[in-house]
Design a protein around this nucleic acid. Sequence first.
DNA 1: TGTACATCAGTGAACGCGCGTTCACTGATGTAC
DNA 2: TGTACATCAGTGAACGCGCGTTCACTGATGTAC
Lengths: 200, 200
Amino acid sequence: MAAGILCSTMRYGADHKKETHHKIVRDASRRVRAKGISGAAVAAVMQDAGLTHGGFYKHFASKDELLTEAVGEAFREMGDRLVLAAEQAPPSTAWKVIVTTYLDAEHSDHAETGCPLTSLAPEIARADERMKTSMLGELMKYRNRMLPFMPGRRKSDRERAFILIFSTMIGTIEIARMLPEPSMRRKVLADARDFLLQSF
Amino acid sequence: MAAGILCSTMRYGADHKKETHHKIVRDASRRVRAKGISGAAVAAVMQDAGLTHGGFYKHFASKDELLTEAVGEAFREMGDRLVLAAEQAPPSTAWKVIVTTYLDAEHSDHAETGCPLTSLAPEIARADERMKTSMLGELMKYRNRMLPFMPGRRKSDRERAFILIFSTMIGTIEIARMLPEPSMRRKVLADARDFLLQSF
DNA sequence: TGTACATCAGTGAACGCGCGTTCACTGATGTAC
DNA sequence: TGTACATCAGTGAACGCGCGTTCACTGATGTAC
């Protein structure tokens, strides 16, 4: 546990608290995407992490602080997934891999590990100024990671492509998630995929 | 007040309760679109309607009943607005009028009177089975009202166009509503408008 | 190496508050005669 | 027309519950000597 690097005032393993903190954030990130911002109660998140609610304020100043970290984590996780997929493809078709990865039944069926925009966009838009600012920062980081893979020669073209492609994908996943029949969901996803792949 | 048609057991004006009921639903519909499903508390909605919370259960069996009626009302209002706009245009360009009406700064700035999909889609997807079924019914009515105006000769083409156009528009409005700068919002809306108008 | 002490992540009871729901009551409206 | 009665939309206090937050306490870990 890298004991030699321990700060002299540390009593517990140096990483122990950090790891617990991160586990809480990761579990909250899942819960927030699955049940919405108002669906992630402090006690429930702590139970997910194998803890009791009392210890929460040893890790976070408030529930809002957890929520902003959880949304940040969600953007990071989804960003990692899309970057990983995009990097496997030749640069010219990377954006197509992002589209097929995003508009996938797996993504549509598992909001809890998916893009936070598809499960939280309207709630983020309604959040108070502080939270909105912080979440917008995370959204911008997410966008900046996607930009290199977007189609277009000039930066402004790629920025425009990001908005158009992600707008369409977000709306498509949201509609798909409302539909009861798996076959309807798959058709919606496939139609949007074909539409986008032919549009740039 | 059409007193002659009064049912013999009616003591109050025949329409009085219906009108109050509808006013509550309309106010709830605004509140639900502005603040989300969990942001529309019974007491707040009743206060909007100039009443106190105690009388609520003279009009609705439960809060869920109000919510389903409110979402239905929202789809109806937005449907009316789009149909009205579309009917003013020649049939071949009606869908373009729907796109420009939907992707408008006024719609982006006023969630409370806008399309419920842009403010509630993820919450609807997470709702319990009963509510989801009812809301899906309203969504299908909404879709059926839009279908005649969608581009495409065959019905299946128009259904596909509806999904693609509305997915893109929903995602666009949601992203626009997250952005702090009015100029950024306007650019996003304009880009999506141009994109859609050139795509069919 | 062994023992006394300090730290602090985690526990669980308790708090105040907002919310959905219930209920005894009110008072305006319309009916019966 | 006037008076006694019935109805029922609306009132406001009260309820139980879940939630965010606080706090005195615990006990495992690491330090000092």
